[in-house]
């Protein structure tokens, strides 16, 4: 697929799991970790604004919470149910929509996060959609795994 021009994402839809959300930009904290949606935007999808915009060459990175307070489902509660071949549509500020097709769904312990697979260089336009999953460690107050959906641009 030919890459699209840079244009920030505004909304994302994953019809197979009923996800529809606006998208806002987030950066890294002082330790170089990806910031996560908070406050009023807690239940919305975020785009890592240091990554390519969806449709540009390289892996565009989207993330969202799996649950909120008291295990209430958040925007990516069903992300782990995504399957290869599912479509992900991303609306962009220039009015275009970049459509991606899921190539792989991975679950990985956070302390063995596949950094190169997820954020490393790609030839064409790709998408990474990340949330949490796996066992919830009550003592540490966190999920032990990340669920990562890998997708490639099919139309833009």
């Amino acid at each position: 697929m030919k890459p699209l021009r840079a244009s920030e994402p505004t909304a994302v839809r994953i019809p197979s799991i009923g996800v529809e959300s606006p998208v806002h930009g987030l950066g890294l904290d002082e330790e170089g970790r990806l910031q996560v949606p908070s406050g009023e935007l807690y239940d919305q999808v975020a785009w890592y604004d240091g990554s390519p915009s969806p449709g540009e060459a390289g892996p565009a990175v989207l993330e969202g919470h799996v649950t909120g307070a008291g295990y209430a489902p958040s925007v990516f509660f069903e992300l782990g149910a995504t399957r290869r071949g599912d479509l992900i549509e991303v609306d962009r500020a220039d009015g275009s929509t970049a459509t991606f097709k899921v190539t792989e769904v991975k679950s990985s312990p956070k302390d063995e996060f596949p950094r190169v697979d997820v954020y490393g260089a790609t030839d064409g336009p790709e998408l990474r959609v990340i949330t949490c999953g796996g066992t919830f460690d009550k003592e540490a107050g966190r999920h032990l795994d990340n669920v990562i959906v890998f997708a490639k641009l099919v139309t833009g």
Binding site: G32, P37, E63, H65, Y71, F113, F136, N146
Partner: peptide, 11 residues
């Protein structure tokens, strides 16, 4: 980015 992503609930 470094490390995993803290997109869990109470995390």
């Amino acid at each position: 980015p470094h490390g995993g992503v803290e997109t869990g609930g109470s995390s």
